[in-house]
Design a protein around this nucleic acid. Sequence first.
RNA 1: GGAGGGGUACCCAAGCGGCCAACGGGGGCAGACUGUAAAUCUGCUGGCUUAUGCCUUCGUAGGUUCGAAUCCUACCCCCUCCA
Length: 413
Amino acid sequence: MTELKSDFLRVLTERGYIHQQTDAAGLDSQAAAGVVSAYIGFDATADSLHVGSLVQIMLLRRLQQTGHRPIVLMGGGTTKVGDPSGRDESRQLLTDEQINANIAGIREIFAHFLRFDDSPTGAIMVNNDDWLSGLMYIPFLRDIGRHFSINRMLTMDSVKLRLEREQPLSFLEFNYMILQGYDFVELNKRYGCTLQMGGSDQWGNILQGVELGRRVRGRDLFGLTSPLITTGSGAKMGKTASGAVWLSDRRLSAYDYWQFWRNTEDNDVGRFLRMFTDLPLAEIARLEQLPGAEINEAKKILATETTRLCRGDEAAREAAGTAAKAFAGAAADGLPTMTLDSGAQIPVLEAVVALGMAASKSEARRLIDQGGVKLNDQPVQSSTATISSADLDERGTARLAVGKKRHGLIKRG
RNA sequence: GGAGGGGUACCCAAGCGGCCAACGGGGGCAGACUGUAAAUCUGCUGGCUUAUGCCUUCGUAGGUUCGAAUCCUACCCCCUCCA
């Protein structure tokens, strides 16, 4: 299976998206012969997705780029029930309105990555609530449930791990794989969808869907998973100082998004460029070869390209410009900013908190004590220090920094 | 329904009447070294009008005690075995 006939699988292979797949040859010839409709499911638990979902989003983008139709499946139905995996009581159930609002927010994100229209390869977004909520229990059990073997389900990793670790596993959760398998069948019926993709943790669920499709629909369905993305040092990707790296600009500024990518580890640069940007492979090969500190140029390109995809051209350029200035020690628009009335003073502590550079005054105090806070490049000596107009330069601006990477501005009000 | 085990900070996990804002590890943050990288070393990792002070936190609500995460009672939730 050295020669791939389809652009789709060839691109996926070259760019490192494939972890496991069912019947690669079958999918390859189907993708080479015509338009394939494929889907990936997403939760509707928040109004934005974070970088953890970016691989999946990019998979759908590659699908469309190579002449096929992406289906974004929103788990509105399953979200409605609530994810039972959280062990604390805080699994608040979302209302229909919240779920719909979340779906709307997520749709905005996808609009950056996919082309939604009525053409044969136009992306569509569907909600599994459309068919799950109306299910009737007995008919469902008879038509679908009989195809699932408990023996088999108990051997699935997701279940087995839970049982071994003596962690709770509710019947509801146990049913997820059935509902998910059913989604695939329903999407095949409605949209001719023949491929489900997802993260490697979804492999078992995807297989169930593939098998179910064969049994109840007599169709050959395909499954494909992407590798779990970790950083070169093995950490799960997607956490920063301020929490999750959100894709939505309502949740995370373009500047912070850009910074997230700028701080990629050396060893990840090539891999991330291939997966998360549209740059040609030859160009990427060159960039990842850059020796020593020059790899930083590649990181900047990575940051700008990923930001461009997710936030648009202009936002990417601005973020890059802001970063260039901020790290050169100059005031830059686009950083968090607060104003200071002329003649007034403000404790450094309060400024650090107000600019979102520390979560509390206690934390700000600790940072100062450790020498981590700088005002105009000078370490702040005392946690009782204040900022006054005297600290503003001729343009009426003072620069405040926490660590090397977090910058903020104070301007004359 | 019965018996036993358990619910501790972001996660894991000690503590089992005062020395507990709570050991240790992970994660995170800061400092040093660097290249806004990794690795390594060091420090920090509840909050407060800045304090040998106060407030909140050890499933929930009460109680005992000068004093409780630690003892008692009730309740909720989880796990295991039995029915």
